[in-house]
């Protein structure tokens, strides 16, 4: 029997009940949310389950939604079942004032650098990560540039006059 989105959804709901929310299928890819303290449990279940077998972590990314109070930051796990060639997406929302999320490096070694990147750009604090420091940006950087409150442009320039760029 092929592994369809309905089967996956039924399987995880059977295990976790009402705790998983926000099921949707943008462009056919099953996406759902888990409470932030349950990310490891859900990922472990998706990994170990003999039917689901989501054993490849494609990517970890993060998004900042400044307009969603209490759930500003989201960490997105992209998982791949290599056997049935099925992909799913798991989202974990967190408060920006205390962005602590359990690391998944114990389950996927690949998560090490991905979590460092998410920390670097969005400031998500992965609890238990073996080496949580910046990976892409310069180490002296004192902010997390993909948070929306920081403008894109380099703020150290003094010679780029706004009037010269038609935005004065």
């Amino acid at each position: 029997m092929p592994l369809t989105n309905e089967t996956i959804k039924a399987r995880v709901t059977e295990k976790f009940g009402e705790q998983l929310t926000g099921f949707e299928e943008p462009y056919g890819m099953l996406t759902f949310e888990a409470p932030k303290e349950m990310n490891l449990k859900v990922l472990n279940f998706l990994y170990d389950d003999e039917e689901l077998k989501f054993r490849f972590l494609t990517d970890i990314t993060g998004v900042h939604y400044p307009d969603k109070p209490g759930r500003e930051l989201v960490v997105v796990y992209h998982l791949h079942n290599m056997v049935d060639n099925v992909r799913i997406r798991l989202k974990v929302f967190t408060n920006i004032n205390q962005p602590d999320i359990y690391t998944v490096t114990g389950l996927f070694s690949a998560a090490n650098w991905m979590e460092r990147e998410t920390y670097d750009f969005l400031g998500v604090n992965f609890v238990g990560h073996p080496n949580l420091k910046r990976i892409l940006n310069v180490e002296e950087m004192d902010y997390h540039p993909l948070r929306k409150e920081f403008p894109l442009e380099d703020q150290t320039r003094i010679d780029k006059d706004d009037e010269m760029f038609g935005r004065g």
Binding site: M141, P145, L152, E153, D154, T156, R157
Partner: peptide, 12 residues
């Protein structure tokens, strides 16, 4: 001058 890359990661 940094060119079009007026951004946090590029040396201006």
């Amino acid at each position: 001058s940094g060119g079009i890359f007026d951004t946090y990661s590029v040396l201006q």
